[in-house]
Design a protein around this nucleic acid. Sequence first.
DNA 1: TTTATATACGACCGATTTAGTCCGATATAA
DNA 2: TTATATCGGACTAAATCGGTCGTATATAAA
Lengths: 135, 135
Amino acid sequence: MIKLSKSVEYALFAIKYLNYIPSDKLVSTKELSESMNIPYDLLAKIMQKLVKTEIVSSVQGTKGGYFLSKSPKQINLNEIIKAVDSEIRLTDCMFENATEDDCKRLNDCSLRSPLSNIQNKIIQLFTSTTLEEII
Amino acid sequence: MIKLSKSVEYALFAIKYLNYIPSDKLVSTKELSESMNIPYDLLAKIMQKLVKTEIVSSVQGTKGGYFLSKSPKQINLNEIIKAVDSEIRLTDCMFENATEDDCKRLNDCSLRSPLSNIQNKIIQLFTSTTLEEII
DNA sequence: TTTATATACGACCGATTTAGTCCGATATAA
DNA sequence: TTATATCGGACTAAATCGGTCGTATATAAA
Ligand code: SF4
Ligand code: SF4
């Protein structure tokens, strides 16, 4: 299936909101979820993933919240997908060190290499798309 | 999720096999499934979809089977995906006439248009990839 | 030092989608 | 008439996604 997850969309909305806020102000998950109509608990986990990948930064405790650690121009769509879902894999074998556990056809599969090229082009497309162009 | 379905892979394998066979010879689902190790019933349904979209042709009855109706050069990857799964839709709203039933954010969503552009690029990539390059 | 409010993190559950199975109908060569 | 093939839809099982819950930790402020 070739589709963005809801979580990626929510991440984009959240980053868009953070981008509108003066960068010295913190925004809580509560404010984000209420103003953009995103389920609180789900968004909370998404924000944590964005922190872990250093796309946004967080401050804990009362009056805490999140702020963008990069400008949208410096963030690309592939980063978001990797942070929120996982690395793009067009097939089960698109690992560096895939084994026959990942796909039993691995050793004599003529599709693997050409499909890998296509995957690279997709990743290239996402990587070259900055959030500035999206949000 | 950005991933090809197993069904698309199976379709590619099947078309590859058909391409190796003299075009006047028919190949049954049984032969295809046994020689490429693809579940018979699943492959049977995939073959029917490929027939319906006129990528392969079929002859029914004893001694019947399938043959390629186009050369791999004339078949593109987007056709296969459309035939076997469905049209690519990067989000729930990527319809010509989407309504708020498809996504309640539809009417004031700033993401829709830029994501549509990205989707077009993906479709363009798949459409410009012929099976000759893959199988 | 207590309280209120915030992030962090993992387990869980329900809904949807994908992958695979089964069964009956129809076509046709032998 | 029989054997073998496609056709087509209903069904089940497994995987993934979207969303929820509970608990721990951090910290500003009363
Ligand atoms: S090895 Fe071939 S069949 Fe297996 S996942 Fe990779 S491309 Fe698909
Ligand atoms: S309208 Fe916006 S939020 Fe809704 S599916 Fe389309 S892009 Fe996503």
